[in-house]
Structure formats: structure tokens, C-alpha cells
Design a protein around this nucleic acid. Structure first.
Lengths: 126, 126
DNA sequence: CGGTATCCCCCGGGATACTG
DNA sequence: CAGTATCCCGGGGGATACCG
């Protein structure tokens, strides 16, 4: 996004996809849906994503107001992440995504496989 | 995705996001919603995206059965892209995305701005 | 515990030029 | 018209190591 395409502005969907289209944001929202969680808890659930990446993702979401980060002055340190109202409002957006995926994942995968197989068969077209 | 994480399988949402999370797929679906379009038509609507990129995106979508590619044996050549049933079924998925974006884009942008401004103020925390 | 700091690789995506 | 062929850059994201 170097030359500030007006597409970025004219197309709101891009804002959402840039925000939740990355690898972990959706899973984070889902995981925080029923209450705040600590950094390590999230890491475990997210299959031990690298701390750097998790931090980066969380910071980005915090920046956009999707969640809050609360540091507790204890030893050992404790940090909790919690969805904001805005963060919670994303659930209705994700449900259709989930539903579509659940319903069509097999179809897509088999279509993809068939398509690849067909291409592999006919290198003759060249 | 090198070491085939089981997350890819266990989390259907990823399939969708990997598919429509890229820069152009959503816009393509929206643009093909009311009927087939030719390659150049798509290019124009999509703010003159590079042919290479457009081709790549379209091929990926074709591979997953979201659209069909029809070549007409004419001169000059004509190629039309049309959503499949599966492709059309994505619309209900995108509408909430659109709606959320329309409703919250200003909020997110201002929250983001405020957040950045605050960080710029306090390099003292260091 | 909850992060930073580095290094590194891959690839999405744009620019430019050429072709059947 | 509808693509290919190259080159290139930025950054997402993982691995590893270290820190307050």
C-alpha cells in the first residue's frame, strides 16, 4: 500500500479483511468471546504461535479498539486481554464465515483436488 | 504453511479467509454478482490491477470452484468470468463484512488515530 | 510470565515489457 | 484482447535467543 490507492478508502470491506484476514485475529476473537484471557493462555490455544507474532497481532487489534490490554502489578506478571464492545461486534461477521466454511470446506477441497488433477493430466495443451 | 500445521484442518474459517482474504477476491465476487464479465472489464473496475495479479486471483478462484472461465473462439479473443453457484453463495458471507465495515469504519479509524497519537506523546514510558 | 530482539524465508502484489 | 514473462520490494510470519 505504497501509493495510497483510493481503493483503500472507497472499499470498506478491505478495512475488515485487512484487520481479520491475517492468520490469527479470528481465532483470537473467538477465544476471547467468553471472557478475558492471559497471554500464555492464548498462546496455548493458538497452537503455540510465536510470542512475537502473537504480540504483534494483539497490538494491532488493540490499536483498532477490538480489545483491551490490562497489566496487573503482580509477581509473576499477569496481563489480560479482553474484547471490547467493538471486538464483540465482530462475532456476527464471523459466524457466516464459519458457517460457510463448515458447509463448503469439503466441496472446495474436492473441487480443488479435481482441478489440480485435471491440469496434471493435460500438459498436452501446451 | 510449510510444516502442515493441523490448525489448517481444524479451523475451517482459515479456508475462507485464505480464499477471500486476499486483495481482490471480494471485489471480484461483488463485481460478478450481476452477471459475467470479461477480463478487461474486471481490470477497469478493479482500478487497473495488474494483469498478472488479476489472472492469478481468477485462476485461484476458478480452482476452488468459485467461478468459471469461458473462452470464446473469436477474434479478437473474448474470455468471460462468471460466478458459479458456490461463488454466489459467498454473498451472504460478505454482506455482514460490508455492513460491519460501513458501520464501524469511522470508529476504527479514529480509535486507531487516537491510539497512535497517544503513543507518540509518551515515549516517556521508556 | 510476558514479552523483545534478530535473523530469515516466502510470497502477495505491483511495474514493466512482450506475445498469440 | 487476454494474457505471459521477469524483476523487484515489503512485510507477514516462523525460529531462536535473550530480558525485566
Amino acid at each position: 500500500m505504497k501509493h495510497t490507492n483510493n481503493l483503500d478508502i472507497c472499499c470498506p470491506p478491505r478495512l475488515v479483511l485487512d484487520r481479520i484476514g491475517d492468520k490469527w485475529s479470528v481465532l483470537i476473537v473467538l477465544n476471547l468471546s467468553d471472557g478475558p484471557k492471559r497471554f500464555s493462555e492464548l498462546r496455548e490455544t493458538l497452537h503455540h504461535v510465536t510470542p512475537k507474532v502473537l504480540t504483534h497481532t494483539l497490538r494491532g487489534m488493540e490499536r483498532d479498539g477490538l480489545l483491551t490490554r490490562t497489566v496487573f502489578a503482580e509477581v509473576p506478571p499477569r496481563v489480560e486481554y479482553e474484547l471490547t464492545q467493538l471486538g464483540h461486534s465482530l462475532r456476527p461477521v464471523m459466524e457466516p464465515i464459519n458457517a460457510w466454511a463448515a458447509e463448503h470446506v469439503d466441496e472446495v477441497l474436492s473441487l480443488r483436488k479435481a482441478h489440480d488433477a485435471q491440469l496434471a493430466d493435460e500438459p498436452a495443451a501446451h
